[in-house]
C-alpha cells in the first residue's frame, strides 16, 4: 500500500473502523500496564532526589500529563489543517472528540504541578513560565469547547474549531517564549524546576515508562472515541448494520 493510498483510507471512517478494532483494546491494556509499572517504580523503587526528597516522585505523573496536554493540542491543530484544507471527515471527528481529554490532562498537569509546588517552592501556585503557559493551554481548550457549544451547525462548528485550533498552535510557541521571558525578568531562576542535567537512569527510566504509557492512553482514547463517533454518525449505513449484526449473532 502506497503512502497516498494510506492517506486516502485514513480519511475514510469505514476503513478506520475496521482497521482499528484490534488496536483499541491493545492500547488500553498497554497503557494500564505501562502506567502501573511506571507509577509503582517511581513511587517505591526510584531513588529520592537529593534536594527535594520524596516529593520529587510527583514528576512521574506530572510530566506525562503535561506531555499529553501539549501533544493533544498539537494533534488538534494538525486535525484542524486537515479539515480546513482537505475537508477530511476523520479530522472533524478528532476535533470534536479530543478536546475533553486534552483539557483533563492539562488540568491534571496543573493540579500535580500545584501539589508538587507546595513542598518544593512553598506555595501552591507561582506564575512561573511553564505553569503560566500550561494555564493558557487550559484556556485554549476551554475556548475550543465553548466555541463548539456556541455554534449550532455541526459542520460550521467543526470548521470554526479547526481554524481556532490552527491559530492556537501557531501562537503556542510565542506564548511560551513570552511567559518565559517575563518570569525570568521578574523572579530570576529561583523557581525553575531543578532537574539535574545528568539525571541517573534509575530516575528517568520510570519516567520514560510513564510517558510511553501516557501516549498509549492517548492512542486508546483517540481510537475508542473515534469508533464511537463513527457509529453514532452513520447509524444507518449498511456496513455499520452488518457490523452490529455480527456482534449480535457471533
Amino acid at each position: 500500500m502506497t503512502l497516498k493510498q494510506f492517506w486516502h483510507r485514513l480519511g475514510s471512517p469505514k476503513w478506520f473502523f475496521h482497521m482499528s478494532g484490534p488496536w483499541q483494546g491493545a492500547f488500553a491494556v498497554l497503557a494500564v500496564l505501562l502506567l502501573l509499572t511506571g507509577m509503582t517504580w517511581g513511587l517505591a523503587f526510584a531513588p529520592p532526589d537529593y534536594q527535594q526528597g520524596n516529593s520529587f516522585r510527583i514528576i512521574y505523573v506530572h510530566v506525562p500529563a503535561a506531555v499529553l496536554a501539549q501533544s493533544v493540542y498539537l494533534t488538534l491543530g494538525v486535525a484542524g489543517v486537515l479539515l480546513l484544507v482537505w475537508r477530511m471527515k476523520m479530522a472533524q471527528l478528532v476535533l470534536e472528540n479530543l478536546v475533553g481529554f486534552g483539557a483533563w490532562m492539562t488540568a491534571l498537569a496543573l493540579f500535580t504541578g500545584a501539589v508538587w509546588g507546595k513542598p518544593t517552592w512553598g506555595t501552591w501556585w507561582v506564575f512561573d513560565g511553564r505553569t503560566t503557559s500550561t494555564l493558557v493551554l487550559l484556556f485554549l481548550y476551554f475556548g475550543l469547547y465553548a466555541l463548539r457549544q456556541a455554534i449550532p451547525s455541526r459542520e460550521a462548528a467543526g470548521r470554526a474549531c479547526a481554524l481556532l485550533a490552527v491559530v492556537g498552535v501557531i501562537n503556542i510557541p510565542v506564548i511560551k517564549y513570552s511567559v518565559e521571558w517575563w518570569t525570568t525578568l521578574h523572579q530570576g531562576a529561583t523557581f525553575k524546576l531543578t532537574e539535574a542535567p545528568a539525571m541517573p537512569a534509575s530516575m528517568w527510566a520510570p519516567l520514560l515508562v510513564n510517558v510511553l504509557g501516557a501516549y498509549c492512553l492517548f492512542a486508546a482514547n483517540l481510537i475508542a472515541k473515534l469508533r464511537t463517533a463513527i457509529l453514532r454518525q452513520e447509524p444507518g449505513a449498511a456496513w455499520v448494520r452488518d457490523w452490529a449484526a455480527g456482534e449480535v449473532r457471533p
Partner: peptide, 10 residues
C-alpha cells in the same frame, strides 16, 4: 502531596 497527586492521577 505525593499521595494526593498519585491518587488524583489514578
Amino acid at each position: 502531596y505525593v499521595w494526593m497527586a498519585y491518587s488524583v492521577a489514578v
